[in-house]
């Protein structure tokens, strides 16, 4: 029989170790779920590879990319879209996390997380970090295959310098997904996210074509692309892959991460967020 009297009195508050245990537990659980969903890993990998091997191969002779930073020479189209596809993996992963949170809410698992005594901002941030960790695995698996296709940065250190950019852009896109999960009422509504968030963000960005090309065809679309945070995630990754920093993109991605995460935390706050306006996280 469990006896509460045998326990020492609870010390008020939580120590750093307890926060670390909680973070580790959330990341571990996300990784376990990911391992149980092998098809998720495969589809996450197949999607960018289809773009790389089919779309980019088809367009390489049609679309020339002139010398633009961070490139120091003419490049092939598959080389150009590789950072965009890295960001695409993270975009889909962020939205997948959003879907997973809606599913957890519908199945009731979300309550287990939300009744934890640790601060809610910490729980949500931990969940976000767990999602980013999963997306990093996917991106590096993609980079290994791209390397075999002869697509690699000029310097192998690029694989390392791109890591902080991937973490930051993963946090931004994951936070956006988390925010969306707070406003999606049911799993059925997730198709709307595909149509109204993922596709516009991806196509109205510099992932598939440089912005100067877009501007030639449609200045207003180029303007929209410049406003798109996903464009800046792509450019941050692109520059970091070539061991450079795009400061504007860094500022935009950092700012958007703070705003999206702050809004998601508010949305999941029981007194202020979207959940209470809807009648709770049922």
């Amino acid at each position: 029989m469990t006896s509460i009297t045998s326990d020492p009195p609870l010390r008020k508050g939580f120590g750093l170790l307890q926060y670390a245990i909680c973070l580790k537990g959330i990341v571990w659980r996300e990784a376990l779920r990911y391992l149980h969903q092998r098809e998720r890993f495969i589809s996450a990998l197949v999607r960018p590879l289809v773009w790389l091997f089919i779309f980019a191969a088809g367009f390489r002779s049609v679309l020339g990319v002139s010398i633009i930073p961070p490139y120091e020479t003419y490049i092939l189209y598959p080389v150009y879209i590789t950072p965009g596809l890295m960001a695409m993996i993270q975009l889909f992963n962020g939205m997948q996390s959003s879907l997973s949170m809606v599913y957890d809410r519908e199945m009731g698992n979300m309550r287990t997380l939300l009744v934890s005594p640790l601060p809610r901002w910490f729980l949500l941030t931990s969940k976000l970090i767990a999602g980013v960790a999963v997306s990093l695995l996917q991106v590096y698996a993609y980079l290994i295959i791209a390397y075999l296709w002869d697509i690699a940065p000029d310097n192998y250190w690029g694989y390392l310098t791109v890591l902080p950019a991937l973490i930051l852009s993963g946090l931004m896109l994951g936070a956006l997904g988390m925010l969306l999960s707070s406003v999606i009422k049911q799993l059925d509504n997730f198709a709307g996210v595909m149509n109204f968030v993922i596709f516009p963000m991806f196509f109205a960005s510099s992932a598939l074509y440089p912005l100067w090309r877009v501007e030639e065809g449609s200045p207003w679309l180029a303007f929209v692309c410049e406003l798109n945070p996903f464009t800046h995630a792509v450019e941050l990754i692109r520059f970091a892959f070539y061991m450079q920093v795009n400061w504007l993109s860094l500022a935009v991605v950092l700012g958007c991460t703070v705003v999206f995460l702050g809004a998601a935390i508010i949305a999941y706050d029981p007194s202020r967020g979207m959940l209470v306006r809807r009648g709770g996280p049922e």
Binding site: F14, G15, C22, I26, R29, T112, L123
Partner: peptide
């Protein structure tokens, strides 16, 4: 509110981690 895809022990480990 249990995670159906995890074992009993894994569910308990996750819950305990949420309590530090």
């Amino acid at each position: 509110t249990l995670d159906m895809d995890l074992s009993i022990q894994q569910n308990l480990l996750y819950h305990a981690a949420l309590h530090g």
